[in-house]
Design a protein around this nucleic acid. Structure first.
Lengths: 250, 250
DNA sequence: TTAACAATTATCATTTTGTTAATTATATAT
DNA sequence: ATATATAATTAACAAAATGATAATTGTTAA
């Protein structure tokens, strides 16, 4: 492939917007208060080869070049593991950023992925070596930084995609333990919506029993969120596609 | 960029799954019967340079290599215009196909896009020169062919994406004239759903008046679909995000 | 013993839906 | 001219879901 009739890119990378939903307050017998966080890394001053690094010192999305034997998805998985020690989580490709000029090093294509990481996986991260370069920020905080490359644009797109995914698919399961209470689910959903039918306790407690993709765990309760004890629910494997044309608007 | 520490792809392409919704039967004063179609091209025996073409004779998605001065999205737009003469339509990127081995010519990355083309734009296509190599097929037909490369997989993903988009966003507008009747909207939606609340006339006629993203065109009717004349509706620019957690299931 | 509190159930008026039927307006066939 | 067929639309009413507010339950901790 030497005499090419077409242009070849100068680099092919995979970036990952790692989201987690952190429990801000965790008191015994109390429903959690959660917030949506994104993981950023601070770019090093020097490359591994010892050269001055591009966009050094700026906060950026984790990611890196795709290796010869892998595709972008595998590269994203590998980078995520290297950065955080996390494996086997929910990750998806959601966009390509390939505008000429987006990276001063040349025509570098970024495959943007997002990942949903349950909170408890992050305990490992805290113990890892370069944890001082990796931080979680609320989305609002993150967007106020002077981020590297076009990462501000990528993050905005990722937030929009993940919001839609949490509300219109069963992706919330990736932020929850296998068995959860209604208030835990409510806490996850409330990080991305203000819908009163979800925020209102009574309405949501009634509704959860009618959702075909959630089932009650029979004869089992937890005191995680209440002294009285609360029923446990789990997602079954039903996937839902509800048209906006049949929803209620009032 | 000669001494690279990372692999560079052998080619960077953009493929487009062009969907249209064709009116199968169009009698005067009668609601249309529509079906979802995808556009395929038959790959030529020879390349422009006169060499034997890869995957020659097979049906494939339109697309081609990204040029040096454009990104994949612009390439998809350009290819679509070259193939069909269509401009200014709804097109989106939905996936990357970059598995090593997917293209025998090397490590060729495909950026998969889908486009939604209103029927009336296609009349131009019929008049174009190489129309004999371009055909519309129902999705079921298309998936039975021995398609080039991994295009079967790409098409399946595209259908899933477009179904979700038509039902959960206002993308149906791209298959309809600016002002449309309830039965025309119903015909579009029925190509991707069997939901009885949409298929049932009375229920849907009642519902359309309550949808916040659709408004009545005052004092204007059409006889396109009925001798009696039917009210006209239009989409306003409201975008909707309805959680599955607040929908009705019965 | 009691206050506090999350979870859950109860109540009831209001709204929406499912279902079936009736009405309307008009082109076409007779 | 008149009747017929047909799509759009409205009507009617029982059944179901929702909104709003209140009451009940079970447990810990003061």
């Amino acid at each position: 492939m030497t005499d090419k009739k077409y242009r070849t890119p100068d680099g092919y990378t995979a970036d990952i917007s790692v989201f987690t939903i952190l429990t801000e307050e965790l008191k015994a017998f109390t429903p959690p208060i959660m917030s949506l966080k994104i993981m950023l890394i601070k770019r090093a001053d020097l490359t591994i080869e010892g050269d001055a690094n591009i966009e050094a010192g700026k906060w950026a999305l984790p990611g890196g070049f795709v290796q010869p034997d892998e595709d972008a998805y595998q590269a994203a998985e590998r980078e995520l593991t290297e950065e955080t020690g996390i494996t086997g989580i929910h990750m998806k490709h959601f966009g390509v950023y390939d505008k000429p000029g987006r990276d001063p090093r040349g025509w570098i294509i970024s495959n943007a992925h997002y990942a949903i990481v349950p909170e408890h996986h992050l305990l490992k991260r805290k113990a890892s070596d370069d944890a001082d370069q990796v931080e979680l920020f609320s989305v609002d905080e993150a967007l106020q930084f002077d981020l590297a490359f076009d990462h501000k644009q990528i993050i905005k797109a990722a937030v929009s995609v993940i919001t839609r995914e949490i509300l219109q698919t069963t992706a919330a399961k990736n932020f929850l333990p296998k068995e959860f209470t209604y208030s835990e689910l409510q806490a996850v959903l409330s990080t991305v919506t203000k819908d009163s039918a979800i925020l209102n306790e009574q309405a949501f407690a009634r509704k959860i029993k009618a959702l075909p993709f959630i089932e009650l765990v029979e004869g089992k309760t937890t005191q995680r969120t209440s002294k009285k004890g609360a029923k446990l629910y789990r997602f079954n494997n039903m996937e839902i596609l509800k048209p906006i044309y049949t929803a209620r608007y009032n």
